[in-house]
Write a protein that binds this DNA or RNA. Structure first.
Lengths: 222, 222
DNA sequence: TACTATCGACGTACGCTGTACGATTGTCAA
DNA sequence: TTGACAATCGTACAGCGTACGTCGATAGTA
């Protein structure tokens, strides 16, 4: 007889439900606002009930990260390698923008989950099939992932998401706190960018395409 | 008359001393092990004494990040732009490898400190003087920083630092947990890398040089 | 010399955290 | 009916950030 009223839903608890609700909470409140009691509350359960589905909070965080990896599109097999990498990299950027807390969490989590491994396998497969040697595929993997994660990290620490928001912020916040004589070049940049507008998604594509183009000659086409 | 015995030193407290000790603690115990009480203990003080030098823990973390930025070498003015960027990027990677907690912290900290701003100004100046347009300099800035931060983030989540440690880990830990039929390409890579050895510092240089070379034609040389 | 203001340091306390432990309940097999 | 088992929860504890008030030592002034 399950009778207790539950805030989020009436279905029983499950690891899946716990992790999904945890992600929703982290998206809304940030990872610092995610406590076992809050999470349990959102699920209409007692705090200790969660420990039947998750050994401890660390394991919960690991599981959350792996769900995030599941959200990232795999490189489509039928496309050429550059298109495939562009697709999955853009998807990764979007997903990490949706779940900014995930970026900061990766640093402390050492062993990759199943979705993470599947993703790496698919990317490596795509590169190898495109003619990259084992060593070159490793280089490409590191390079692309570094760019994606680093971009997401930088974007997460910016207080705006769109070109319009940027224009407002830049004019009202950035420029005033940059003494022109001390930071002439930053002023120059900020001023120019206010006029031109600024979109993180476009910025991302610029660097991504530059990297892809630079990798192209390094593969031994079959 | 300052008479109390202090663990770390007998000099009086100061914001500088608090922040430096906090960094030492975070390096040793990780950012989760850094509590105001622990920190105060390491300084031979009471927990609340710290609040005379720091408004709250957030401000402490901000200050720690900015000290980390101070440790990063600025691009040397006399060098050509590629050498200058190589120097400062390699320095940044080393510093972030020394303070892995700093990477995860950046995501949540939105406004850059003075050292961070000085660094950005110097990098932008270097790029502009090398002939990059304002827009191109911004692209290059994002691209290089993304790579540096992302690389550091990935490196931090690896449980090894040197080629030798990697060989041990790969053989004992990675390969056994990768079913060859499910992850053929990852197995291929891991096996190959065990033989060849693997050094994060070299890996970093590969991607960095590739990016620098790809940026070269995009500047309008004076 | 005596009084007072100021500053650095700290003790206590509050509400929060993760989670160990044990008790309680509902379900099903024997 | 009995026993085993899984799920749930209440209580408790140590540790967290930090608000608040206090205290001793020093500096300035009368």
């Amino acid at each position: 007889m399950r009778e207790r009223r539950q805030v989020a839903s009436d279905a029983g608890l499950s690891k899946q439900r716990v992790v999904v609700e945890a992600i929703r909470l982290a998206d809304r409140e940030g990872v610092d606002g995610l406590s076992m009691r809050q999470l349990a509350g959102a699920l209409g359960a007692g705090a200790m009930s969660l420990y039947h589905y998750v050994a401890n909070k660390e394991e919960l965080l690991d599981a959350m990260i792996d769900v995030v990896f599941e959200e990232i599109e795999l490189p489509p097999e039928e496309a050429d390698w550059q298109s495939a990498m562009r697709r999955r990299s853009a998807s990764a950027r979007q997903v990490l923008a949706r779940h900014p807390w995930a970026i900061g969490l990766m640093e402390s989590r050492t062993s990759p989950g199943p979705a993470h491994l599947r993703h790496r396998e698919a990317v490596t497969a795509c590169l190898r099939r495109a003619g990259f040697s084992i060593v070159m595929a490793t280089h490409a993997n590191w390079l692309l992932d570094s760019y994606v994660y680093g971009f997401a990290l930088q974007a997460a620490s910016l207080p705006f998401d769109t070109a319009d928001e940027f224009a407002d912020m830049a004019e009202d916040v950035f420029l005033p706190q940059l003494p022109p004589d001390e930071f002439p070049y930053l002023n120059e940049s900020a001023a120019a960018l206010v006029g031109a507008g600024y979109d993180p998604a476009e910025e991302f594509i610029f660097g991504l395409d530059l990297i892809l183009a630079a990798l192209e000659p390094l593969r031994a086409s079959a």
